[in-house]
Design a protein around this nucleic acid. Sequence first.
DNA 1: TAGATTGTTAATCGATTAACAATC
DNA 2: TAGATTGTTAATCGATTAACAATC
Lengths: 230, 230
Amino acid sequence: MTDATRAPASSMLRLSRYHCFFGELLASEDAVQRITSRQIADELGVSDETVRRDLSYLEMEGRPGAGYDPAETYEALETFLGLSRSFPFAAIGTQGMLEALRVVFPSEQFGLDPAAYFSAEVAGAGGRIGNVAVFPVADIPVVLPDLGVSVALVACEQHDVPETLRLLDEAGVRSVLMLTPMLRPQHPEGMNVTYFRIPCALKALAASAPQKKPCCETASCCHGSTPAES
Amino acid sequence: MTDATRAPASSMLRLSRYHCFFGELLASEDAVQRITSRQIADELGVSDETVRRDLSYLEMEGRPGAGYDPAETYEALETFLGLSRSFPFAAIGTQGMLEALRVVFPSEQFGLDPAAYFSAEVAGAGGRIGNVAVFPVADIPVVLPDLGVSVALVACEQHDVPETLRLLDEAGVRSVLMLTPMLRPQHPEGMNVTYFRIPCALKALAASAPQKKPCCETASCCHGSTPAES
DNA sequence: TAGATTGTTAATCGATTAACAATC
DNA sequence: TAGATTGTTAATCGATTAACAATC
C-alpha cells in the first residue's frame, strides 16, 4: 500500500481538494462516466499536468484516451487520505463561532462529521448546536478518544488556545487546524498544526492591491501616490 | 521606492507576519532596543536566513553585530506592505459569523480596522456589531469607496458568494480573503482571492495523522490496520 | 579591536511545467 | 485503427539553506 506521507505536502493539499470535488461530482445529478485531467484542472484552476501527477500517487489508474472514473477515484482518494465516509472531527470555539461555522461551512456537505463541540463558555452539561452536543473544554480528553477523533478545528479565544491544545494533545489529537490567529506557533511537541492566519492574509492582500486612499470627491482623485509605485 | 510585488509571494506572506509580530513587540512593555534575525526566527519558527532574506526587501537595513531596530522595521514593513496605521477592511458574512469573528480575531490588536460590515440578513438600516455599522450587502458599492477599503474578508453563506464578489468588484475591491469554502474559484476577472479552505485543510490533516478508529475497550486496541501503513 | 550579525552569492532542495512514449 | 489522454522522465522554475565577506 502506498504511504500517504510519500506525496509532497502541496500534492496532499490538492488531493484533499480533489476529494471534495469528486464528492460533489458524485452527489450531483449529471452522473459523469469519466472525467479527464483537463476537465478537473479547468474546474479547480490548476494545470492538467499537476492533476495527473497528483492522481498518480493513488492506488488507481486513469484510462488513456478516456480519463478517470469518478467513483473509483473518490474511493482511492478516501483511502489515500485516510478518510472515512463521514470523517469525524472535533470543533473547539466560542459558542457563537461554532454556531456561525455551521452555516458558513456545512461540514456534512464535504463528507466531514462534527463529532463533538467544545466551548470554554460551557460548564456543566452544555446544550446542542444542530445535532451535535457541546461539552466543556475540560471534557476533551474524556469525550474524544471514544469517538475516534484525530483531527480538530480550533476557533476559540486567544487566551484559551494553550490550554485547548494541551487538552487535545492529552486526548491524542495530533492534527489541528487553527483559526484563532496565533502569531507564534506554540503547540505541544509532535502536534501537527495548520495555521490559518486571517490578519496576516489580509495584510498580504493589502500589499497586492493597488492602494486606495479614501476618495475625496471624484473617482479620478485616486491616481498618483500609491505607496508601492515602481 | 521598492516595488512590493518584486518579493516572492512566500516572502510577502511572512512579511505580513513580521508586521504583526513587530506590532505586538512594540505594544509590549519590554521595549527591546534591537532584535536579531535569530530571535525573530525562533519566535516565529522559521530559519534566520529566511528572516534576513525577507527583511532585505525592505527600505531599511539591519546593523551587523546588533540586529534590527523594531520601530524602524515596523515602519518599513508598513510602507512595504502598503498598510496604514489602522488599515481598513470590510467584512461580509452572516451576522453570527461577524459577531463571532470579532471575539476570535480581535482585528484592532493586529492594526486592522473593520471599517464596515455587510450581511445578507440585513435589509434596511442594520444595527451595529461592536462599533461597526452593519449594512445590507447591496450597499457594498455605495459604502466602500468612501471608506478607502481595498481588502475584504468574506465569510457568508455559500450561495451568497457570487453576488458578494460581484458587488465587491463593483466597489473596486480587488483583494479578498475567502473563508467560505468554495471548491472552484469563481471570482471576477482580475480579482485577487485567497482561499482558506477549511474542509480541505481538515482532510489534509487527516492524512498526516495516524488514523484512529473509535476505540473499543482498551487503549491498545488502536494498533494495527492504519489505512496508510507503509 | 574582537565578536556578532548582517546582506548576498552560490548551492541545494522541492515543486511545477513541458514533452512524449505508452496505451486505451 | 486513429484520436485522445494517461503516467512519467527530463527540464525549468522558484524558494530555502549554506556559506562567508562586509561591517557595525
